[in-house]
């Protein structure tokens, strides 16, 4: 059985390591110390953890002010509340003001499964990537999470990172090098391209194995940076393979699939399938169950790819 990891652990460990080396690093939370797994950070740096209570607008505004005062604030809060409740602060205080704030949307997507749509954060990529100046990153495993947090600390400017609590396997090699704005090719192939990020990258890899059993070689791209997007990797996929299937733990309106489609239709149009949550509030169910429910099973992904290939065959 493959070992599974909660990316919040890699996130929290990376933050503590960074904070030891750089006094400017502080955290800002909305009573979300435990849920962000940053108890250790608070114990080691009690004077550098600002808990504003349950007040997301104030939380993001304070982070912008801390950045003005020379700090590097990491806001750690459930993505649903951080992005929805404080969206205007994210737009104005952070992005428009170009404040050096790192917004860490914890337990994003469907991670809070059974708790229902108030706690689901399936619109956060659409909202944040629509805002100028924002860099938007969705790590897929602990290795990428750790590197993305380090990259965030060294990058000057506003950033939104999605940090899931949904257990995922390690998918990157230990020598993997994360780079902001660069897609990672996890599997070579020239028949079709599967593009994913975050918790569903593993499902893309599983679907690619199923496709290989049918003689179809799928390229798998981990598009961790949604903005700025890796146009080159997408154009290559469009020109070198017969179509693109995107999958995301997000609504299909405005997320990863939309971002890829924006590049594809304006450069080298090829047929696409956009898999994700089909514009509805999710029913009750666990996070993995909901991903299956919304058609993100390896088999459903394989079938979407096969349909795309069949549709392209000349009659």
């Amino acid at each position: 059985m493959t070992q599974l990891f909660d990316c919040r652990d890699a996130f929290a460990n990376a933050l503590v390591s960074l904070a030891r080396a750089d006094r400017r690093i502080v955290t800002v939370v909305n009573d979300s110390i435990g849920s962000s797994k940053i108890t250790n950070f608070g114990e080691e740096f009690p004077g550098r953890l600002v808990n504003v209570g349950i007040a997301e607008q104030n939380m993001v505004g304070i982070a912008a002010g801390l950045a003005n005062g020379g700090k590097i604030p990491f806001v750690c809060a459930a993505s649903c509340f951080l992005t929805a409740r404080a969206l205007e602060q994210i737009k104005v205080d952070v992005a428009y003001s170009n404040a050096n704030v790192k917004l860490c949307g914890m337990s994003s997507g469907l991670a809070y499964g059974e708790l229902g749509p108030t706690h689901h954060s399936i619109e956060d990529l659409a909202w944040t990537r629509a805002i100028a100046n924002m860099t938007v990153i969705v790590p897929a495993d602990p290795i990428e999470t750790e590197q993305a947090i380090c990259a965030a600390a060294h990058f000057k400017g506003p950033m939104f990172l999605r940090i899931s609590r949904m257990p995922v396997p390690i998918i990157h090699a230990t020598d993997y090098h994360f780079e902001i704005g660069r897609a990672a090719c996890l599997r070579e192939g020239n028949d079709i391209t599967l593009i994913a990020n975050g918790t569903v990258v593993i499902r893309a890899l599983q679907a690619a194995m199923l496709l290989a059993e049918r003689g179809v070689q799928a390229r798998v791209l981990n598009l961790a940076t949604v903005r700025p997007i890796d146009r080159e990797a997408i154009v290559q996929a469009a020109t070198q393979t017969s179509g693109i299937v995107t999958l995301e733990e997000h609504t299909i309106f405005g997320g990863l699939g939309s971002a890829v489609a924006e590049v594809v239709v304006t450069t080298h149009p090829v047929p696409m399938r956009i898999l994700g949550i089909q514009g509805v509030f999710a029913p009750t169910g666990s996070a993995p169950w909901l991903l299956d429910y919304f058609g993100l099973t390896p088999i459903a992904i394989r079938d979407a790819a096969l349909e795309l290939i069949e549709a392209r065959q000349p009659v």
Binding site: G61, N68, G69, G70, P73
Partner: peptide, 21 residues
């Protein structure tokens, strides 16, 4: 110091700068 125009933004940012000091 910070972009404003939408109301109710200045005081939270000011808390942040005051905390930084």
């Amino acid at each position: 110091e910070t972009n404003t125009g939408a109301l109710g933004h200045g005081l939270p940012v000011a808390i942040g700068t005051a905390l930084a000091a």
